[in-house]
Amino acid sequence: MNIFRLAGDLTHLISILVLLLKIYATKSCSGISLKTQELYALVFLARYLDLFTDFVSVYNTVMKLVFIGSSLAIVWCMRMHRIVKRSYNRELDTFRHYFLVAGSFVLALVVHEKFTLQEIFWAFSIYLEAVAILPQLVLLQRSGNVDNLTGQYVFFLGAYRAFYILNWIYRYFTEQRFGRWISWISGLVQTALYADFFYYYFMSWKNNAKLQLPA
C-alpha cells in the first residue's frame, strides 16, 4: 500500500459518500445516471469475484464489501425507492450502455493477463470502469445545470483514478515486477474521459459560477 493508492481509495469512498448524501439528503436522484450506477455495480461484482477466495487484507476485503454494497444500494434506491425513483431523469438517461458492457467483455476475451474466468472478468471490469462514466457525463450535458453534490460526486470519482495512476507509477519504480499495462492504459483512458468535465468544473469553481457543461 502507498500514499497514492490510499488517497485514491479514500477519494473513491468520498465520491460514494457524496452520492449517498445527495440521494439521502435530497431524497432525489435528479442528475444521476442510473446506467452509470448499474455499470459500476457490474464493475465491482466482476472485479471482486476473488472476494472469498483470495484474502489480501482486512482493509481490502472491507472496502470491496463497501463498494459492492453501496453500488447495489444506489441502484436499488434509484429503481425501487418510492420517493427517490420519481426524480430519476429517465428521458435524459438514454445512453445505450449495453454496448459498453458487450464491448468491454469482447475486449476482455481478447486482451487479458491469463485465460481464466477470474482474469477475464477482472479485465472486463477494468475496461468497463474506464467507460462507465459516459452515461453520467452525457446526462450532465443534457440536464444543463448540475447541482453541487452531483458535480462533486463526478469530480471525486474522476480524481480517484488519477491517484491510481500515480500509484502505478510509484509501484513501477519501487517493485521490479510491476507491469500491469491493462490497468495503466484503461486508467489513462478513464481519467482522460473526465478531462473536459475537470476543465468546466475548475472554471466554474474559479469564476464561482454554477457548473454548466456545454450541450
Binding site: D9, K114, N167
Partner: peptide, 10 residues
C-alpha cells in the same frame, strides 16, 4: 497464490 496472479488493488 503467487503475487503475480493476485490482484491486490481495489
Amino acid at each position: 497464490s503467487p503475487e503475480g496472479s493476485l490482484h491486490d488493488e481495489l
